[in-house]
Structure formats: C-alpha cells, structure tokens
C-alpha cells in the first residue's frame, strides 16, 4: 500500500475539517479524490503530503508516518497543480534542473534525466524557450514529467488538466496511464467528473467524511446513475456545510 489512512482527523478549534477518514491506495493505482468545495479535500491532502499534522488518527504515505516522518514523505512524493507548477520566467531546461536540484539528484543524474525527458516530450528544440511561451498543453505535460523527475512512489495531481483542448487532455491521460503502468501511484483531485472516470477508484468526500469509495463503474451502478456527475451530485447535495 502506498497510502494507508486510519481515522485520519483534522480539527480547527471546534470545526472538524476532516472527520476520521480511512482508506488505502495501492501501488500503481490511479486514485480520484473528489468532493465539493469545503468538503475537506485540501486539508486531507495537506496531511498526506506532510504539510499539516493530523489532530488524530494514523496515516502512512510511501511507508512513512505522517506525524514523525514528514521530511521523508516530501522526498517520496511528486506534486503538480494547474495553478502552480512551473516557473514561467525560467526556460524548459532550467525548470527541469531547478526541480531535480531541489530533490537533490546528482549533476550526472540531472543531465541524464534532462536529455531523456526532453526526448520523451519531443521538446528538444524548446529546451531554451521560456516556459511562459509554451502552449498550455505542453506546459501540463512538462509539469507532470517534472513532478515525477525524482521517481517518487506517488504523485499528487491537484486539478491537473483544466482548459486544454480535448486532444491534449487525452494525451495527458495517456501519459498518466503510462506512469501508472510503470508502478507510479497517482492521486488526483478534480472538480470534473469526466476526469474522475479515468481513475481506477474514486472516493467522494462530503462534510469531512468519505461517503463513497469504489470504482467509477460500481459507483454508477450502486447509485443507478448514468455518469459520475450524477453520483457526485446525489452525494454532494446532502452536504450541510456551505462552501461560503
């Protein structure tokens, strides 16, 4: 198991942001982590990334404890979000070098990784271009490649593919399938239920709790829904917390 969480809880004063969630994520799995705004997704994810200490409960990520081994966790995970991922004022090559450096890859390893990555992405000609000048779809593919440059056990994707054209989105998901095939675990949060349908399993959070967890196919069957959108709406509309 790459993630195990047992009654993981986070309180802010009297407010229970994450309320005793339990789940496991297997190696190589594409795991969707869904919930409406305010459901507690971000708080839960921050605990799993070693950025916030739980109030109670247990969890391990890549075998490391979320209370005592947060530094090891940070070294074993990758992170990519639509909002923040690459430095726009650095070139493609500089971004790769920067992130690989942060993860303390050796110079020789960085050179080798950079060459391989540029070739895989067909971006050899753009290595000296500023990231700002790249089309959004290329940025996303580059951001994902960089997020796994240090061969993490698991990569967290925070709303990864908003806004790009459908062809680019398909290519992006093919890349994710490929990474999963290589044994990298993928943990995705998204508002878009068509993205949820790419996941092997998804969990849906409502008011700090995990209300449902299964494969998209079985969830659709259980809730007699034609799409994940329907499943999500049925569950999320029960929420008593307002997103205000």
């Amino acid at each position: 198991m790459v993630i195990t969480a047992r009654d993981l809880t986070k309180r802010f004063g009297a407010f229970v942001a994450v309320d005793a969630i339990s789940f496991e994520v297997r190696k190589g799995e594409i795991f969707g982590f869904l919930g409406a705004n305010g459901a507690g997704k971000t708080t839960a994810m921050r605990m799993l990334c070693g950025l916030s200490l739980p109030s109670s409960g247990q969890a391990t990520v890549a075998g490391y404890d979320v209370y005592r081994q947060t530094e090891q966790i940070k070294r074993s995970i990758g992170y990519m979000s639509q909002k923040f991922s690459l430095y726009e004022d650095l070139t493609v090559r500089e971004n790769i070098r920067f992130y690989a450096g942060i993860y303390q890859l050796s110079d020789a390893r960085i050179r080798e990784k950079t060459a391989k990555l540029l070739q895989q992405l067909h971006m050899e000609e753009q290595e000296k271009s500023l990231v700002r000048s790249l089309p959004l779809g290329w940025k996303q593919k580059l951001a994902f490649a960089i997020a796994i440059v240090h061969d993490p056990a698991i990569v967290f994707l925070d709303e990864p593919t908003g806004g790009v054209d459908p062809m680019m989105r398909k290519e992006f998901w093919s890349t994710i399938y490929e990474a999963s095939d290589r044994g990298i675990t993928i943990f995705v949060t998204t508002h878009y239920m068509d993205e949820a349908e790419y996941c092997h399993r998804v969990s849906i959070m409502v008011d700090g709790r995990i209300e449902a967890l299964d494969s998209p196919g079985r969830l659709m069957k259980r809730y007699a829904a034609g799409s994940m959108d329907d499943v999500f709406l049925q569950l999320a509309r029960k929420a008593s917390r307002t997103g205000a």
Binding site: A36, H191, L233
Partner: peptide, 10 residues
C-alpha cells in the same frame, strides 16, 4: 464555470 465544483456548476 471554470474551477467551480460540480454542484455549483449544475
């Protein structure tokens, strides 16, 4: 509706 959750979007 960019960046808005599924319930608000609906």
């Amino acid at each position: 509706t960019t960046g808005v959750d599924a319930v608000s979007r609906k």
